[in-house]
């Protein structure tokens, strides 16, 4: 039921990662991702993977939950690994294994194996850090953080605060609309709508009785919401203060410093060891 749905994947807690400033978390996550792509060999990537693992431990998010965030991209990882394994061959490669398959021979090379493992670890690291960000930051904090980070753009007349308000409203109304969709679907099924079987075209057509009421209701909600917001002095322009105060504290600066160190380490390790990619 709807009461069970939690938007985003925030995991309530008070770990050091939870307590960090949302802006710093956003920036550092972005930076970490860039550094992941800077890695050239197993040593630098290993350093980053170790850092990601330490962060995961610091967050105190249960391991099961973290593993669950890998699930959606599992297929992608398998697919790219297989491609890398099979299609990396050529003059400078060292064959490890030759598999006769019908009329062809599949050659698996050492380079292919390295690249497959390398990209897998890289993707997993990317997913891990970005999930850590969403696990330790509420969606509304993320919105606020993003709004503050982008606030300089307001000077270029980019309506940053309006975009942030739109995001806030979206977060607020997603559960409401899911619930509504559910209710309308049940109602139309009760009138004999067949939403589960039939060809694709048939199913798309079957959704008209769900989509029309959903849109009608969304527009009505929007109109009522506009009155409610206006009644509470929202104008959409001008400045607003905010209940949420973001403050950079010592741990935030320390985290930034650590990332700089890691970055330096990656550059050094890239230098001293031969590249895989």
């Amino acid at each position: 039921m709807i009461k069970e749905i939690t938007i985003g994947q925030y995991y309530a807690g008070s770990s050091p990662l939870h307590r960090m400033d949302a802006r710093m978390k956003l920036l550092l996550t972005l930076a970490f991702m860039v550094v992941i792509f800077l890695c050239k060999n197993f040593f630098s990537l290993g350093l980053l993977a170790a850092c990601a693992a330490v962060l995961a431990l610091l967050s105190r998010v249960p391991g099961g939950m973290l593993l669950r965030s890998f699930r959606p991209i599992l297929m992608l990882v398998v697919f790219t690994s297989v491609l890398n394994l099979l299609y990396t061959n050529g003059a400078d490669t060292h064959p490890l294994l030759e598999l006769p398959v019908w009329r062809w021979t599949l050659v698996i090379t050492r380079e292919g194996l390295f690249i497959a493992v390398f990209t897998t670890v890289r993707i997993l690291c990317l997913i891990l850090v970005s999930s850590l960000l969403t696990y330790t930051t509420t969606p509304s904090m993320l919105t606020t953080g993003l709004e503050r980070l982008l606030s300089p753009l307001a000077r270029l007349r980019v309506p940053v605060s309006v975009f942030a308000m739109m995001m806030t409203l979206a977060l607020r109304f997603v559960p409401t609309l899911i619930e509504e969709t559910d209710r309308i679907m049940s109602a139309q099924k009760s009138r004999g709508s067949n939403l589960e079987t039939g060809s694709l075209l048939k199913r798309i057509k079957a959704f008209v009785p769900v989509l029309v009421p959903l849109f009608v209701s969304a527009f009505r909600r929007a109109a009522e919401l506009a009155y409610a917001m206006e009644s509470r002095c929202y104008t959409g322009s001008g400045t607003r203060t905010s209940l949420k105060q973001l403050r950079l504290r010592l741990p935030d600066y320390l985290a930034a410093f650590c990332l700089l160190l890691v970055m330096a380490g990656v550059v050094a390790l890239n230098r001293f060891f031969t590249a895989v990619i």
Binding site: I184, S186, V208, P213
Partner: peptide
């Protein structure tokens, strides 16, 4: 069963299309 038992939900006007 869908046609034996007719179900009229709360605020049924929101199903008109």
């Amino acid at each position: 069963a869908r046609f034996l038992v007719g179900l009229c939900f709360q605020y049924p006007e929101y199903q008109l299309f």
